[in-house]
Simulated scan of single mutants.
Amino acid sequence: MDESSIPRLGQIVKVIRGRDIDKYAVVIDVVDERYVLIADGDKRKFDSPKKKNILHLELQDDISKEVVNSLNETSRVTNGKLRFSISRYLENIQPDEDLKGE
C-alpha cells in the first residue's frame, strides 16, 4: 500500500460508494488498515460517525489542520469545524461554482 492510499486524521474524503455517494466528509478516526470513521458535521455528526471501507472513499490531498489539532488536543472536534473544513475545501477546488444554489 503506497503512502497516498493511507487515510490520515483530518483528511478530506469523497464517498464513491454507498448511500452518500459524491458527498464529502472528514476522517475523524482510523479504525484499521481497511476502515475509517468519517463525519461531515451535518448529516453525519461527530458523535455518530460512519464506519467506511477505504475502498469506498476517494482520498483528497487536503488535510484540515484545525480538525487534526482539535482531535489531538481534546479527542473531539465540533460539527461546525467539520462543516467549515469541507466548505473551505470545496471553495478551493470549485471557485466558480455556486455550491449550494443559494
Rank of each mutant, 00 (worst) to 15 (best):
P7L: 04
R8P: 03
L9T: 04
G10E: 11
G10L: 02
K14A: 02
V15D: 12
V15E: 03
V15K: 12
V15Y: 12
R19T: 07
D20M: 05
I21G: 01
D22V: 02
K23I: 02
Y24S: 00
Y24C: 00
Y24A: 00
A25F: 11
V26C: 11
V26N: 14
D29L: 01
D32I: 00
E33Y: 07
E33S: 01
R34H: 15
Y35L: 09
Y35H: 10
Y35S: 01
V36Q: 15
I38M: 01
A39M: 08
D40L: 09
D42A: 04
K43Q: 06
R44V: 02
R44H: 10
K45S: 08
F46Y: 11
F46E: 01
K51F: 01
K51R: 11
K52L: 04
K52M: 09
I54Q: 11
I54K: 14
I54S: 02
H56D: 05
L57R: 14
E58W: 13
L59S: 13
Q60G: 02
Q60Y: 03
Q60T: 06
D61N: 15
I63D: 05
S64W: 00
S64D: 11
K65L: 10
V67M: 08
V67N: 11
V67P: 15
V68P: 12
N69Q: 03
N69C: 04
L71T: 10
N72W: 06
N72T: 03
E73S: 10
E73R: 14
S75P: 08
S75D: 11
S75K: 14
R76V: 07
T78H: 09
T78N: 03
N79L: 01
N79D: 14
G80S: 13
K81C: 09
L82E: 00
R83Q: 06
F84H: 15
I86D: 04
I86Y: 12
S87F: 14
Y89K: 11
Y89W: 15
E91V: 00
I93F: 00
Q94N: 14
P95Y: 07
P95H: 07
E97D: 13
E97I: 04
